[in-house]
Structure formats: C-alpha cells, structure tokens
C-alpha cells in the first residue's frame, strides 16, 4: 500500500498510523483499567453523560459565592456537564492539590447522572 510512496511520505504515514494506534490503545486502556480509566480522558467518549451538578466550596472558612467560585476554579458553580462525573471530581482534586494546596478547603458536590438519584461527594483538606 505504500509501494508507490516516496520514503519521506512513508515515514509521515508511519508516524500518523502510530498516532492513530496510540489512540486505540488509550481507548482500550480506558475501559480495561476501571479505576484509572474512569475519567475517560482519551477514550473518545464525549457527550456520553448527562450530569447536572452544583458545588459548594468553603475556603479558609469563607463560603465562596458564584463569582468567587468561578474565579477560583474557572467552572460555573452549578451547570450541566457532559463528561464523566469522575472527571469533574478529578479536576477539583487536582486544583486543590496544586494551586489550592495551602488553603483549608471543603467541597460538597451534588450531582445527578442521567436523571438518577442525586449523589453527594464531599472532600476536604487543610
């Protein structure tokens, strides 16, 4: 299939195929590794989840209002989210373990996945 192609052409195609195959591996990994694949970062699974969430964040004893929340996390305090809820929770944990690591933070996330009963997730540190 590459016999008519110039050598450099072939190298490009091999590189492209490697990229595609890497994605295939990532898709398989996301499903096989239940724990680490739960956030579905590289699974080509966009818009497969219907998540209505609201988040309450208390930082150093101060309950953040909507504007403060948005400035801190660059997320709406309540919104509709179409990726796995694990990704949202992972995002918040990553923020708190990096930019927010010196703060005393308490997070309460309420979300409904696909119209099922609400789930409450709590997390705090500091």
């Amino acid at each position: 299939m590459l016999s008519g192609a110039l050598p450099f052409d072939r190298l490009r195609v091999y590189a492209g195929m490697a990229l595609v195959l890497a994605q295939l591996g990532a898709v398989v990994f996301a499903h096989v590794d239940v724990k680490r694949g739960a956030a579905r970062y590289f699974a080509w699974a966009p818009n497969d989840y219907s998540v209505d969430y609201s988040i309450r964040a208390t930082v150093n004893g101060h309950l953040l209002d909507a504007r403060e929340f948005g400035e801190r996390y660059r997320l709406p305090e309540r919104d509709f989210y179409e990726d796995p809820p694990q990704r949202l929770l992972h995002y918040l944990r990553r923020y708190e373990s990096t930019y927010g690591r010196h703060d005393r933070t308490s997070l309460v996330v309420r979300y409904r996945l696909d119209g099922h009963r609400p789930v409450v997730w709590r997390w705090s540190h500091g």
Binding site: A5, D9, V13, G16, L19
Partner: peptide, 15 residues
C-alpha cells in the same frame, strides 16, 4: 491538522 500534515500524498493509506 496533525494528520493532514502527515497524510501521504501518494499513499493508498488514508490516515
């Protein structure tokens, strides 16, 4: 865009 850059003009493989 990356695949467009890598696509082989004379290759029968379509990335």
């Amino acid at each position: 865009f990356v695949l467009a850059a890598l696509d082989g003009a004379r290759s029968r493989i379509s990335l």
